[in-house]
Computed example of a mutant assay.
Amino acid sequence: MEHLAPLADERDSKHLMAIVDKLVLNLKQYGLYLQYLLADGGFSSGENYSALEARQIKGFIPLHGSYHPN
């Protein structure tokens, strides 16, 4: 992945679709297609769920803040 360090002060969820779009282009060069995406809760947002659905990518991202330790 390209340099993502400058993004460290921002929410991960803000950058997910830019990362996905670059990944889709890279995979397409090899005749591969992104069908499923697994990410941690930091990438959770309604906008990302909607954008993944529009791209016909099944996203497995837990809802932000849904973890509750026992």
Rank of each mutant, 00 (worst) to 15 (best):
A39I: 03
N26D: 15
H3W: 09
F43N: 00
Y49K: 04
L25S: 12
L16A: 04
L63C: 13
L34E: 02
G31W: 15
L52P: 02
R11M: 13
Q56V: 07
H68A: 15
R55I: 04
N48T: 04
Y30H: 14
P69T: 08
Q35V: 13
L37Y: 01
H15L: 01
M17C: 05
E53L: 13
D40Y: 03
M1Q: 07
P62T: 00
A54V: 06
V20K: 03
L38V: 05
K28S: 12
A8T: 11
L38K: 00
G46D: 09
M17R: 03
I57P: 01
R11L: 13
G31I: 14
K22W: 09
L27A: 12
Y36F: 10
P62A: 05
Y30V: 13
S66R: 10
P69G: 07
E53S: 12
Y36D: 02
G31C: 13
Y30L: 13
A5C: 01
E53M: 12
A51D: 04
I61V: 00
A8F: 00
H64E: 09
H64Y: 15
G42T: 00
D21Y: 07
P69L: 08
D40P: 00
D9T: 13
K28G: 11
I57W: 04
V24T: 10
V20T: 05
L37V: 01
R55V: 03
P69Q: 02
